[in-house]
Computed example of a mutant assay.
Amino acid sequence: MARLRDIVIDCKHPASLARFWAALLDDYEIAPYDDAELARLGIDSPEDDPSVLLQRLDGGAPRIFLTRVPEPKTVKNRVHLDVDGDVDAVLALGATLVAKYDDHDLLTDPEGNEFCVFP
């Protein structure tokens, strides 16, 4: 019936949060910018782009969009990402440890979005 296409993460500053997630996820990278497209949209710099795309290195799905929204995050996420990785390395990227559980840790990205890291 349906297939997961994209994951969208609302945020205050898409470019910096995209760099965080691209560094965290080994199989993703920030999609190349098209300067002509940015100019057509009236965007002077990739730092001001209201929606930044992370794409899988193999071109597969899902893609991840970091999209600017005006309101701040105020409550717990209803949906979050689970990743396998080294918690200390993720913390070094700028994540914050929220809680430790038997088999995983709960962290937040630099804008407060929750995700779980399984060692």
Rank of each mutant, 00 (worst) to 15 (best):
V8G: 08
D102N: 12
R40C: 07
K100C: 07
A99W: 07
V52M: 02
T74M: 09
I30V: 15
P62E: 01
L107P: 09
E111Q: 13
A89W: 10
N77E: 08
G85M: 09
L106E: 03
T74V: 14
D58N: 13
D34L: 06
K12G: 07
V79I: 11
G94H: 00
P72Q: 06
C11W: 03
D86H: 08
Q55F: 11
L66Y: 06
D86E: 06
P119E: 03
V87I: 15
G94Y: 01
L4T: 02
I30H: 02
E114S: 14
L4M: 12
T96C: 10
A39R: 15
L57I: 15
D84Y: 15
P50T: 03
R78K: 11
G85Q: 07
R3Q: 12
P14F: 00
F118M: 14
H80Q: 10
D109W: 00
A31R: 08
A89N: 04
L57Q: 10
S16F: 09
A31P: 12
V98W: 11
I64S: 04
A15L: 08
A31E: 07
Q55D: 00
R56H: 04
Y101K: 14
E114K: 11
D48W: 04
I7H: 07
E37G: 11
V117K: 10
A2L: 10
D58Y: 03
I43L: 00
K12W: 11
C116K: 04
V52I: 15
D10Y: 13
K73F: 07
R63Y: 13
L17T: 01
G59E: 02
D58G: 08
P46M: 09
D86T: 02
C11T: 09
F115D: 00
V117W: 10
A22M: 05
V83H: 12
F115M: 09
A39H: 04
P62S: 04
L93T: 03
R68A: 15
A95C: 10
F20W: 01
V75M: 12
R63N: 12
D35L: 14
C116W: 02
T67E: 13
D6P: 06
S45M: 03
D102T: 15
F20V: 05
D6V: 10
P14G: 02
G112N: 06
W21R: 01
A61P: 09
N113E: 02
Y33A: 13
E114A: 14
L24A: 15
L66G: 07
V117A: 04
K73D: 00
D10F: 12
T67R: 13
L107Q: 04
L24K: 07
F118Y: 15
L41E: 13
E71Y: 01
D6H: 14
R40S: 14
V83M: 10
L93G: 02
T74E: 10
D109C: 04
C116Y: 04
L38H: 05
D27A: 13
V98G: 01
P72S: 00
A95D: 07
A92I: 08
L54R: 02
N113D: 05
F115A: 01
A92D: 08
D27F: 02
R56C: 07
W21L: 07
M1Y: 06
L24C: 14
I43N: 06
D103G: 05
R5N: 14
T74S: 10
H13N: 15
V79E: 04
I7L: 15
E37W: 11
I64K: 05
G59W: 08
